[in-house]
Nucleic acid binder design. Structure first.
Lengths: 185, 185
DNA sequence: TAATCATTTGTCATGTATGTCAGTTTAGAC
DNA sequence: GTCTAAACTGACATACATGACAAATGATTA
């Protein structure tokens, strides 16, 4: 499913009238762009997925693969690889970002449904990333699991900033998987 | 990508039927010229970009380099606004990013052809942004103009890292515009 | 519980853009 | 020069947008 979606497609997925879909778009609830001729709306799959998630709507099977994407934001390549292996064994689609900037790129390009976030990425940017994700409506539906070696008070701060959950390093694979499936389920 | 585009190319980019593209051309919505034989349409990349922009349609990555968009990566809102005003007067399309993560998002979403980069941004050193942009083939075509108040040795370092040019703060609007048009021209 | 109001969604009819198919032609590659 | 993939056209079917109005939903109050 890499095709852009029409209002009709989305109407079928959501089992509503396509008129309603158009209204969602008009109201800015669902991101779309228009074709020049009649003004047909086209929706990118990732935007549709974001819409479904923000509204707690069921994700159709064709898009389910996209909802098992996890972005690993982690400075240390060893830890990153460890997390990646763990997740891939559990059939997750993963990508690694090693800096705040890289994370920004991947969040957009990869459209993960969950991000594991190290607070220690270069420039003390972990909290910045979290803060931005929580204030940007386009990204606010993405679950954030903070994974950090910092003391408890920093983890608490992360929770204040809007992290969905926190884990302290070193992480145990089983516990990590459990937490992630809990957050995504 | 300096090649003229066929209707098929554009159909793929816009994810519509090529028949529709031909109709856009016939209706004068999209500028094109015809080949003598069968009347094949050829579209110049800049005309296609203009078409996409006037219709608020997403710009494919491959064409991002042709646009007149500038992303201002700058921590200080006063400086950012100053740069933005200067560029907008010169008819550039601009956006501001205030952190490394934010910059990553905007680089993807906005598809700028040039980035003005402050080295002092939070969340990630400007140099790391630069480094990443220069090692990622998808982003390497984007021009980077470093604008910083740091001493000359840091600017030299930025050039080593692959900045297309550097300017020290405070920047004079005229000089900034000249440099940017030089880089994009 | 029932009545009210505000908001959202569904329905219908109409005009129009887009998709599809078949058949033809040519541009580009070898 | 030959061949194939891709572009053009025309006709037709499909699907989308719009506006107006009806129906459903949900919250509030009596």
């Amino acid at each position: 499913m890499n095709k852009t979606l029409t209002t009709g497609d989305i109407a079928k997925y959501c089992q509503v009238n396509f008129r309603t879909v158009i209204r969602w778009i008009d109201r800015g609830l669902l991101k779309a762009h228009k074709l020049p001729g009649r003004g047909d709306n086209r929706v990118k799959p990732e935007d549709f997925l974001a819409f479904l998630r923000t509204n707690n709507m069921p994700v159709p099977d064709e898009l389910a693969m996209m909802s098992k994407r996890v972005l690993i934001v982690e400075d240390d390549p060893v830890v990153a690889k460890l997390i990646e292996k763990t997740l891939q064994k559990a059939d997750y689609d993963t990508r690694i970002a090693s800096s705040g900037f890289h994370a920004g790129i991947e969040v957009n390009e990869f459209s993960p449904s969950l991000v594991t976030l190290d607070l220690n990425i270069p420039g003390m940017g972990g909290l910045q990333v979290l803060k931005y994700m929580r204030t940007n409506p386009v990204l606010s539906h993405i679950k954030v699991l903070v994974v950090s070696g910092l003391p408890q008070e920093d983890l608490d701060k992360a929770l204040e900033y809007g992290a969905d959950d926190v884990m302290s390093k070193p992480v145990k694979p089983a516990a990590l998987l459990e937490k992630i499936s809990e957050l995504l389920g």
